[in-house]
Amino acid sequence: MQASRKELAQRVLLALAVAGLGLAVLHESARFSALAAVFPRVVGVSLVILAALLLMQSILGKGLASGHSESMGHFAGGSRFRSAGFVVVLLCWAFLLPTVGFIVTSSIAFVGILLIATERGTDWRITAKRAVLGLIVIGFFYGLFSMLLNVPLPRGRLWALL
């Protein structure tokens, strides 16, 4: 009973959030010119209608199931700390790339994710071998992209200052 009440509350909150998003879009579209406002308004109104239907569906307890769910969430569960650690490393990687440079950030991030993803009880020598292999992969793709495909990978503003 507790779980279903919690689930219902979550669904109602989700419907309200979707309705809020639709209303925000409608509010924001008031600033646009007539031509540019047509489509956002249509989408905003659609979101509000869909939120109302979602709310009704939640209250009536019926879902319009389509038969299968996409391949997402197949691995639900596991360690939240590892997931959070991975997200933090990814964000740092993306935001430090122009400052610290491609090779340094990628090498550190690669080893960081490798350590987070390593299964428990793995010998440190195996981890070290994997890290070296990873650095070789980075070197190979750096060469491929920067030399063969002429992609100007960031060298890092930090190194220019030193």
């Binding site: 991975f86 990814l90 990687w93 993306a94 790339l97 990628s106 991030a109 690669f110 080893v111 994710i113 490798l114 993803a117 390593t118 299964e119 793995t122 981890t127 994997r130 292999l133 990873g134 992969v137 980075i138 793709f141 992209f145 495909l149 992609v151 100007p152 990978l153």
Partner: peptide, 22 residues
């Protein structure tokens, strides 16, 4: 092993996204 697959794929995602428009 997953410990090598995940950072390799993440690396491909980063370099691939960057290479679209540099």
């Amino acid at each position: 092993p997953k410990a090598l697959l995940v950072p390799t794929v993440a690396f491909m995602c980063v370099i691939g996204s960057f290479a679209i428009h540099n």
